[in-house]
Each structure stands twice: as C-alpha cells, then as structure tokens.
Amino acid sequence: MNRNRFPKIILILVSFLILEGFSIYLIKEDSVIQRMNIMKTVRKTNTWFWKIGYNYRSFYNLKETNTNLASENVRLKEKLEDLSHLEINKPNTTALKDFNINKYYSAKVIYNSSNSLHNYIILNKGENDSIKKDMGVISPNAIIGYVESVSSNFCRVKTIFDIDNNLGAMLKKSFTFGKLNWNGMSLKKIELEDIPLNTTFNIGDTVISSGYSIKYPEGVPIGQVTSYKLINGINFTLEVEIFENMKALRYVYIIENPNYNEIRGLLKEKDYEKR
C-alpha cells in the first residue's frame, strides 16, 4: 500500500512546488507582470472603479484640499521672497539653463493603498500626459515614490511604504548618507539605515533625498529623526517620521529628469563593462 502511495505523494509534492514556485515568481516579478496586456486591461477596470470612489471622496474633501493648497502657496511665496534678492546680482547662467532642469507634472491621487506591505498609489496621469516609467513622485512635503507602470491615462506609483522600495537619503545637517527602508510597521515612520557610528545627529534632524538617484532631485525633504538604535555596534538605524500624511494624500508632482536616458545609458554601459 505504501509503495502505491509513494508516486502519488511525489506527484502531489511536485505539483505543489510548481504552483507555489510560480506564485513566488509572480510576486517577485510583479513589475514585469504589470506590463502585460492582461494586467493593463484589469488595471483599466480597477481604475474605473477607483475613479468613481475618488470623485466621491474628492467632493467631500474639497475644504481640506483647499487648505493644503493655500498653505503650500504661502510656503512657495516665502521661498520666492527669500530668493528675490539674488535676482539683483544674478550671474550669467544661460550655459546652465539647459542642464538638469527637472520638469514637474501635477497629478491627483485616485487610489491609495495602505493595507499591504507593498503599498502603491494610482495617479490620473499616464502616457498621454508624457508620464514614463521610473519618474520620481513627490508631494509638497515629502518624497512619495516612483512610477512603476503606466497606462494611457493613469500610472501606478510604488510608494516609499513598500518594503521592497529602498532609496538613498541623507541627514541635512551632516550630509551623511544612508539607505531609507520601510519595515512595514507604521505608515508614518521609515528607517534610515547604515549611518556610520561617528555621525553626529540629534533627534529632530531633517532627512532629505541624497540626489544620488536619477529619479529624485537632491534635497527633497523626507522627514525628521525621532529615535535611533545601534545595530551590531557598527551602524545606527534612525527612525524617521515622514512629513507627509500618506492617508490624506490628494495631490502630487511627477518629476521628469531630462537627463534620465543619458544617465541610464551610462549606468547600463558600466554594468556591461563589469560583466
């Protein structure tokens, strides 16, 4: 009897491993699958539903949205005031004008996932609005993520609240770099890892983007340090409370780096040389 059962058990085990292996492949290669046509059709249907939900929510949140926009206007005006005195002794910057000037597109959030360890948002801008994959997304207060996949009228953004999304960040005061990583625990806090032991920092210090990324410009605020812990006696891991309330996120800016393709090409060339 046992002999008869053995091939059956092997067959079940093999089938289980194939199906489970395929599921893990799908989970790991989610971004590849997003580009498949079947996924695009499904996303189109989902987005249609989310848009209905968005229209309903945005009507009831108009007051809050206006307040946020007004406070952003005040902040921008203050920045303009600060910079206005530079106009007087402005150097000739025509040579620099064509270089590294990022283009910004405003977009509305129509779906915001916050239940998972792989959170994302859907924006109402897509290929028809010149949005491309890998463009950085920021809000007036913090970095949000990057464009993971694009359809004609919408795009899906992988937020910093995805455990697989790491980005470079630094302490504003000391310019010390680290790796920003979400541990999945709270939608307000994120961790800045690999900060060397000799770094001086205080609770309340601001963390900004490092600029060592072709997706985000340098100096975009992220959050402030709320606590820290020593890891293996070698590095600090800082707990950073982000400046943006992800659950109340309504409007964002998508950043187009005009030098993206050129830098990307160089990076690929370098990878090729390594091989």
């Binding site: 079940i12 599921s23 989610d30 996924m39 499904v42 989902n46």
Partner: peptide, 30 residues
C-alpha cells in the same frame, strides 16, 4: 492536485481583480 489547481486559479482571480500583489492569494491558497 485538482484542489490545488482550483485554489491557485481562484487566488489568482482575486489577485487580478482586486489589484493586490499578483500571486499572493494564489500562493497561500495553493
């Protein structure tokens, strides 16, 4: 084996339709 196949398809359908990470419900259902 038919139950695993059915569970995989059902999980995949849920993943596809609800926009969650593809393969997550499918893998657990298997």
């Amino acid at each position: 084996i038919p139950t695993m196949l059915f569970a995989f398809c059902l999980g995949l359908l849920i993943d596809l339709a609800s926009g969650s990470l593809l393969g997550l419900n499918a893998g657990a259902a298997v």
